[in-house]
């Protein structure tokens, strides 16, 4: 057995999986606050990545400035999506709002192609040293950065939901909007905040992926990976989303290992997470940490 390849792939899986977890977390954030399944999550990553790339290449803004500017932009952009497009939909059936997010996904991805083209663009170099030695293994610096950024965002989100007033307000709104309102919580601003934070966190993930792989329309595929991750963890559990993401990331890479070493079927890593998803949902239909939604008639 090729142990070195396996270890390399496991590290890869962990890094990518944590990133999936972060995106899944930002997806769950919107779902928790408003029960809306956001099909445009992947495009939020893509927009974040393109905006940062554009600042860095067109205006030669240094990364340490370009990144925060991108995040501020995405925060405002998230609020704008909610206020301009989704707020008029309040009171309409949830399925209509979900359809709107599908439309948003199409419109955004077309706009990005129109503005930035369809070719892969390399991201300007962010780190001077390409590799660092961790316990005898050569690990790319960007991978370490990705892991560190992901963990920081996970910790930040955990703090936000447990201890911050806004995070609690968001959870309260998810339970019972009317009661939340009577306590002085504005449901409209909670929704806007959910989109703002979700867009910002997605943009961080988008930039991290872009630094590693470059920017192209394909980056929004991360939005698709979010579904197995979030569903696996249970749609309404932030911690579950992170764990779901890590499991998906690891499964992909383990499948890749098994495939390349033994089976040679090709492309197993792309479908393996979905098989696992089906099996887990057969055993636990609400996901690993999801809330059981039992309706008594």
């Amino acid at each position: 057995m090729n142990t070195q390849l396996l270890v390399q792939l496991l590290i890869n899986g962990l890094v990518v999986g944590t990133l999936y977890g972060v995106v899944a977390m930002s997806f769950v954030l919107i779902y928790k606050a408003s029960q809306v399944v956001n099909f445009a999550q992947g495009e939020l990553l893509l927009i974040g990545a393109w905006v940062c790339w554009w600042l860095l290449t067109k205006y030669q803004v240094p990364f340490y400035l370009g990144m925060p500017i991108t995040l501020v932009f995405m925060f405002v952009f998230g609020i704008a999506i909610q206020v301009v497009i989704l707020r008029p939909m309040i009171g309409e059936p949830i399925i209509s709002v979900i359809m709107v997010t599908i439309a948003l996904s199409t419109v955004f991805s077309a706009m990005m192609k129109w503005m930035f083209g369809v070719n892969l663009q390399p991201f300007p170099r962010v780190f001077n040293t390409q590799n660092v030695n961790v316990l005898g293994l050569q690990v790319q610096t960007v991978y370490l950065m990705s892991l560190a950024v992901s963990l920081a965002m996970i910790v930040g989100m955990a703090w936000f939901f447990r201890l911050s007033k806004y995070g609690l307000a968001m959870r309260a709104t998810a339970f019972n909007q009317q009661v939340a309102q009577s306590l002085g919580i504005s449901v409209k601003s909670v929704f806007a905040m959910a989109w703002a934070i979700s867009a910002t966190v997605s943009a961080v993930a988008g930039v991290v992926v872009a630094v590693v792989n470059g920017v192209s329309a394909g980056l929004s595929a991360y939005g698709v990976k979010v579904f197995p991750a979030a569903i696996l963890g249970g749609l309404d559990s932030v911690g579950g989303a992170v764990l779901g993401g890590i499991i998906i990331g690891l499964l992909e890479n383990v499948a890749h290992f098994v495939d390349s070493e033994y089976l040679h079927w090709g492309n197993l890593y792309e479908i393996a997470p979905f098989y696992a998803l089906i099996i887990i949902l057969m055993i636990k239909p609400y996901g690993l940490f999801g809330t059981k939604d039992i309706e008594r008639v």
């Binding site: 019972n176 009661v179 309102q181 009577s182 306590l183 002085g184 449901v187």
Partner: peptide
């Protein structure tokens, strides 16, 4: 007025059915 604004004016409301937030 929307109820959250009324709440901020200093009018408190305890609804029937004891609607606590169960997961919190």
């Amino acid at each position: 007025l929307p109820s959250y604004r009324i709440a901020h004016l200093g009018l408190g409301y305890v609804p029937e059915h004891r609607d606590i937030f169960p997961g919190l």
